[in-house]
Design a protein around this nucleic acid. Structure first.
Lengths: 343, 343
DNA sequence: ATGAAAGCGCTAACAC
DNA sequence: GTGTTAGCGCTTTCAT
C-alpha cells in the first residue's frame, strides 16, 4: 500500500495545492483564508480564486493543532426529544452565531456514565468551553471539568455547587412556589405524577420543594404515580386515570412536565370533569408547543432560551457581569396559572 | 506573554507527561491508551495508573492529524424542534454506538446558505462521513459533497438525484397515497393546510403528489392555507378555523404535519364537528407524541428511526447491501387511517 | 515488547 | 506585504 502521490485525485486538498495553483506562498494563502494580516488585494483575489476553483476546504485539525485554538463549544444535554433542550440549544446557537464559536452537541440520555464518556470524548477535542446540563456528575466527570482549564457552565439548575459557572433556576423554589399557589387556591388533596427518571435531579428537586411547602401548610401528597417510556401525552392520560380511579377525592394533579400534564388535562376534559373547579392541574416547563390545547395548562416557564443565551455569553466572554468564571446566575421563572388553577 | 513552561499547572496534559510519570516511552503509552499492539500487563497497568492519576485526556486533534483518521460523522439537519429529526438522530446514535464513530450535529434552520456554511465548517474537521437531510443543496454544497472523498448519505427523501447514497421515502408517493385513501373514503372537498416553508422540499413534494392524485380523480384542492411561526398546535387550530369559516363545504383537511393536524383535530372536536363523518383529517409523520389525543389522527409514518439507522449503517460500512456508496434505499411508510378518515 | 525518528497540515514568530 | 522556519501532540514506520 504505497502512499498516494501528490497528484492523487482522491487526496484531499491542502494549502500547498492552493499555494501552487495561485503562485503564492502557503503562509500568504493561509493569511488570506483567515483574513489575518495585510495582504494586497491582487494577491487576495488570486488566492481566493484558486481556492474556489479547486474546491479547497481548510483542515481545521491541522489549524487547531498549530494555533492551539479550537472554535468548538461542547454542549452536553440529557435528551433532544423533549422540547426543553432544543430550545436551550436555540439560545446557545443564536448567541454563538457571531462569535466564531460553534456548538457541538452530545446527548447523555440521563445516564451519568454516558455523560462521563461523552464529556471525555468532547474534551479530547479541546473545545473552548463546556456547557453541561445539571450540577450532578460522576466524580470522574467533576474532575475532568475542574481540570479542563476552560470555562465550564452548568445549566438549568442552581441548587448545588457548580464546578465553575452556573446559569439556571432553582427547581426547589419552583416546586415550592407552585405548591403555595395551589394551596392558596384552596386545593387540599394533591397528587404528584411524574416520569420515572432516577437521574432527573431537577424533577426531583421540584418535587422536594413542592412537598416541603405542602408540609409547611400541614399537608402531604395523597398520591404519587410514576411511569416511564412511551408517548408522554398518553402516559399522562393513563396515569391520571389510574390516580383518579384509585383516589377519587384527589382535587389537584401536579405533573413533572407539561406533556404528561396535557395528557391529564385532555383526559379530565373528556371525562367531563370540571377543570379547575373540581380538579386543578399544573405542569412544568411552559412549552409553547401546547398553546393550542382547549385549556391552557398551569405551568412555570423554565427560562430555557434565556439559559442558553446566558450560558453562551459566558463562554464567549461577553456576559454583562464581565467576571471570569465562577458566577452563579439565577433566573426566575414566572408562574402561569393558565385555566387549570382556580382563582 | 511568554509561553508557559512545562510545569505550568494550567497547561493541558500531554502523552509526554504520562510517559514521564510512568517511566514508559510516549510510544508505549500511546499503544496502551489505544489498545494497539502488544504491551506487557505490568507496563499497561503502570501507564493506566499514571494516566488516571494525572487525569490525562488524549488530544484527538493531534491524534487525528497524525493518523489521518477522524471518528466523527457530520449530521446536518434543518431543525431540532419538530420531533422528526430528534428521532432520526436516535436511529443514528444507536447504530453508531458500537462502531467508535460519533455523530456531530449541525442545524440549518431550513436555510440553504446556512446549510452550506455548516457543511463547510464540518468538512473542515475531516469527518468520516456525512449524513445530510434532503437532496436539494446549493451548487457549492453539492460540489463540496462530491469532492469530500468520504461517504455521503442524503436522508429523508429519494425523489431526486443523490450525490452518493440516499435513504428515505418518496414524499411524492406518500402524498399520492394519502390522496387516494381520502378519495376512496368519499371525501370530495379537500383543503390543504401547511406551514409556510419555501425550503421544505419534502412538504412541497407531498403536496405535489397529493394534487397529482386529486387531478387524476378529476378533483382539485378547494382551499390552501399557509402559516409560519408560533405553536404548531395553535396554528393548526387557527388555520382550521379560517378554512372552515371561509369554506364551510370543505369535508377534508390535509395537513403538512401532525402537530398542526392535531391542532385542527382539537378545534373540530371542540366545535362539535363530526369527525370523521362530516370532516376528515390527516397529517404526516406519525409522531408518537400525539398518541394521547382523544382521537387518533390519520397520518403516515415517515420511517424516521429506520432512516437514521440505515444511514448510519452505510457510513459505518456495515449496511447489508455491502456495496460501497451510490445506493438509493427507499423505505415505505404505512398509512395509518386512525380515527379521522371514515371507512 | 519497546523505542526513535519522521512527519500529519497548518500557524506563530520572526525575517525581509 | 510576503516568505521562512520551527513546531503543535500525536501516530506511523522501522529498528531493536
Amino acid at each position: 500500500m504505497s502512499k498516494p502521490p501528490i497528484s492523487d485525485p482522491r487526496r484531499t486538498l491542502t494549502l500547498r495545492d492552493v499555494s501552487e495553483a495561485s503562485g503564492v506562498s502557503e503562509m500568504t494563502v493561509s493569511r488570506v483564508l483567515r483574513n489575518r494580516g495585510d495582504v494586497s488585494d491582487t494577491t487576495r483575489e488570486r488566492v481566493l480564486e484558486a481556492a474556489r476553483r479547486l474546491g479547497y476546504v481548510p483542515n481545521k485539525i491541522a489549524g487547531a493543532l498549530a494555533s492551539q485554538r479550537v472554535n468548538l463549544v461542547a454542549v452536553i444535554i440529557p435528551s433532544l426529544s423533549n422540547m426543553v433542550f432544543p430550545e436551550v440549544m436555540t439560545g446557545i446557537s443564536d448567541t454563538l452565531e457571531d462569535t466564531g464559536l460553534q456548538p457541538v452537541v452530545g446527548v447523555t440520555n440521563y445516564s451519568p456514565d454516558r455523560e462521563e464518556s461523552v464529556l471525555y470524548e468532547m474534551l479530547s477535542w479541546r473545545p473552548s468551553g463546556v456547557i453541561i446540563a445539571g450540577l450532578e456528575h460522576t466524580d470522574a466527570s467533576q474532575a475532568m471539568l475542574a481540570q479542563a482549564g476552560i470555562p465550564i457552565v452548568e445549566i438549568m439548575d442552581i441548587d448545588g455547587s457548580p464546578v465553575d459557572s452556573a446559569v439556571g433556576i432553582s427547581h426547589r423554589r419552583a416546586g415550592r412556589q407552585m405548591a403555595e399557589a395551589i394551596i392558596a387556591a384552596g386545593y387540599r388533596n394533591i397528587a404528584f405524577l411524574g416520569t420515572m427518571m432516577p437521574h432527573d435531579h431537577r424533577a426531583r428537586k421540584r418535587l422536594e420543594g413542592f412537598e416541603e411547602a405542602l408540609a409547611k401548610a400541614g399537608l402531604s401528597l395523597v398520591e404519587r404515580e410514576f411511569y416511564s417510556g412511551g408517548s408522554a401525552l398518553l402516559k399522562g392520560r393513563e396515569m391520571t386515570e389510574a390516580v383518579l380511579t384509585r383516589n377519587p377525592q384527589v382535587d389537584f394533579l401536579y405533573y413533572s412536565n407539561d406533556m404528561i400534564g396535557a395528557g391529564g388535562l385532555l383526559y379530565c376534559l373528556s371525562k367531563g370533569i370540571d377543570v379547575p373547579g373540581q380538579i386543578g392541574l399544573a405542569g412544568f416547563n411552559g412549552v409553547e408547543l401546547l398553546d393550542g390545547l382547549p385549556r391552557k395548562l398551569a405551568t412555570m416557564d423554565a427560562c430555557r432560551l434565556e439559559i442558553g443565551r446566558v450560558a453562551a455569553e459566558i463562554i464567549a466572554g461577553k456576559h454583562a457581569s464581565g467576571t471570569i468564571g465562577g458566577e452563579v446566575i439565577e433566573l426566575f421563572p414566572t408562574l402561569q396559572k393558565g385555566d387549570t388553577i382556580r382563582g
